[in-house]
Measured scan of single mutants.
Amino acid sequence: SDEEKKVRDQAKRLGVNTEQLLKWARRQGDEDLVRIVERLLRS
């Protein structure tokens, strides 16, 4: 999905993997991002 591509691009920009991005999203309190990243991790 578009959202998932955006998440992957953001992880690349930050230089982190998906698990690290999830931690980062939780720290930001970004519920939408957390949900998308969790979906990516499960897929």
Rank of each mutant, 00 (worst) to 15 (best):
G15F: 13
Q20I: 06
K23F: 11
R35Y: 05
E3K: 14
V16P: 03
E4P: 08
R42C: 14
V34E: 02
D30T: 08
K6S: 07
L33H: 00
D30P: 08
R35C: 01
Q20L: 09
L41W: 02
L22G: 00
L41S: 01
R35W: 09
D9A: 12
K5T: 06
A25Y: 06
S43T: 11
V37D: 00
R26P: 01
L21A: 00
K5P: 04
G15W: 11
R8L: 13
R26L: 09
E38K: 12
E4Q: 08
L40K: 01
V7M: 06
R27G: 13
S1R: 11
L33N: 00
T18S: 07
Q28M: 13
E38V: 08
A11C: 15
W24H: 02
L41Y: 02
E3Q: 09
S43N: 11
R13F: 08
K6Y: 13
E3V: 13
R13A: 07
G15H: 08
V7D: 04
E31K: 12
K23E: 15
V16G: 07
W24T: 02
E3I: 14
V16A: 04
R39S: 04
N17Y: 13
E38M: 11
K5Y: 06
K23V: 11
S43R: 13
Q28N: 08
E31N: 09
V7S: 06
V7H: 05
L41Q: 01
E31M: 13
D2I: 09
L21G: 00
L33I: 03
E19S: 08
V37M: 05
L33W: 03
V7Q: 04
G15T: 04
Q20R: 07
W24A: 01
Q20Y: 09
N17K: 07
L22R: 02
L33C: 06
D2W: 12
L14Y: 05
K12P: 02
I36Q: 04
I36S: 02
N17T: 14
I36Y: 08
R35G: 03
G15M: 06
D32R: 14
R13Q: 04
A11M: 14
R39H: 07
A25E: 00
K6I: 10
N17M: 12
Q28W: 14
R35Q: 05
V37I: 14
E3G: 09
R13M: 07
S1K: 10
R26Q: 10
E3C: 15
K12T: 06
K6W: 14
D2N: 09
L21P: 00
R42W: 10
L41F: 03
V34T: 02
Q10K: 08
D32V: 12
K5L: 07
R8T: 05
V16T: 03
R39M: 08
V16Q: 03
D32F: 14
Q20G: 07
G29L: 14
E19D: 09
V7W: 11
L41G: 01
A11G: 04
E31C: 15
L41H: 01
A25Q: 02
Q10W: 15
L41N: 01
R13E: 03
L21I: 03
K6M: 12
L22H: 01
D30I: 15
R27M: 14
E3H: 11
L41K: 01
R35A: 07
R39W: 13
K6T: 06
K12L: 10
E31A: 10
D30E: 05
E4L: 12
K23H: 11
L22N: 00
W24I: 04
Q10I: 15
T18G: 07
R27D: 15
R27V: 11
S1P: 09
K23Y: 13
R42I: 04
D9Q: 09
T18Y: 15
L21W: 05
Q10M: 15
E31P: 12
L21K: 00
R35V: 04
E4A: 09
N17H: 06
K23M: 13
D2A: 09
V16I: 13
E31H: 10
R13C: 15
R8W: 13
Q20E: 12
E19A: 10
A11L: 14
E31D: 10
K6F: 12
D9N: 09
I36M: 11
R8P: 05
D32P: 02
Q20C: 14
N17V: 13
L22E: 01
L41E: 00
E19T: 09
R39E: 03
E4Y: 14
L33V: 02
L14Q: 03
S43K: 12
A11K: 07
R8S: 05
V37H: 00
I36A: 08
Q28K: 07
K5A: 08
L22V: 02
R27Q: 15
A11T: 04
R35S: 04
Q20K: 09
L14F: 07
N17L: 14
E4I: 12
S1W: 11
V34H: 01
W24K: 02
E4T: 09
G15R: 12
G15I: 07
A11Y: 09
R8Y: 13
L21R: 00
D9K: 08
L33S: 00
E38T: 08
Q28E: 05
D30W: 15
Q20P: 01
T18D: 04
L33F: 05
E4G: 07
V16R: 06
D9S: 07
D2C: 15
L21H: 00
R13H: 05
L21M: 03
A11H: 06
D2F: 11
L33Q: 00
V16Y: 15
D30K: 09
R35P: 00
R27P: 01
K5H: 05
R39N: 03
I36N: 02
D9V: 08
V7L: 09
A11S: 04
Q10R: 10
R8F: 12
D9R: 07
D32K: 11
V34P: 00
D30R: 12
L22Y: 03
S1G: 07
V37L: 15
Q20F: 10
E38G: 02
D30Y: 15
E3D: 12
T18E: 07
D30H: 12
S1L: 09
R26Y: 09
L21C: 13
I36K: 05
L40E: 00
K12E: 09
D32T: 11
N17E: 03
T18L: 15
R42N: 04
V34S: 02
V7G: 06
N17D: 08
E31W: 15
Q10H: 09
L40G: 00
R35T: 03
I36L: 12
V7R: 06
K6D: 07
R8G: 06
D32N: 13
N17I: 14
R8C: 15
D9F: 09
K6C: 15
V37W: 02
R39G: 03
S1T: 10
I36F: 11
R8D: 04
E38H: 03
A25K: 01
V16L: 15
G29C: 15
S1F: 11
K5I: 06
E31F: 12
W24E: 02
D30C: 15
A11I: 13
W24R: 02
R13D: 02
R27S: 15
K5W: 07
E3M: 13
D30Q: 08
K12Q: 06
Q28G: 01
D9G: 07
R26M: 09
A11P: 04
R26I: 11
R26T: 05
L21Y: 01
L22I: 03
D2Q: 10
D9C: 15
L33G: 00
T18A: 13
D2K: 10
D30G: 13
E38R: 04
D9L: 12
L40V: 05
G15D: 03
Q20W: 14
A11Q: 09
K12V: 06
A11W: 14
V34A: 05
A11F: 11
R42L: 08
K5M: 08
K12I: 08
D2Y: 11
V34I: 11
Q28L: 11
A11E: 05
D2L: 11
R27K: 13
L14D: 02
W24M: 03
I36V: 05
R39D: 03
V16C: 15
G29T: 07
Q28F: 14
R39Y: 10
G29Q: 06
L21V: 01
I36W: 11
R27I: 13
K6Q: 08
Q10D: 03
R42M: 10
V34N: 01
A25C: 14
S43W: 13
Q10P: 04
D9I: 10
V37Q: 00
S43Y: 14
R27A: 15
R42D: 05
N17S: 13
R26H: 03
R26S: 04
L14W: 10
W24V: 02
S1Q: 09
R42K: 11
E3F: 12
K23P: 01
R35H: 02
L40R: 01
G29E: 02
Q20T: 08
V7A: 06
R13T: 04
R42Y: 11
V37Y: 02
R35L: 04
L33K: 00
V34M: 06
L21E: 00
D2V: 10
R13Y: 06
V16E: 02
W24S: 01
Q20H: 04
E31L: 13
R35E: 06
R42Q: 08
D9Y: 09
D32A: 12
V7E: 03
R13N: 03
K12W: 08
L22K: 01
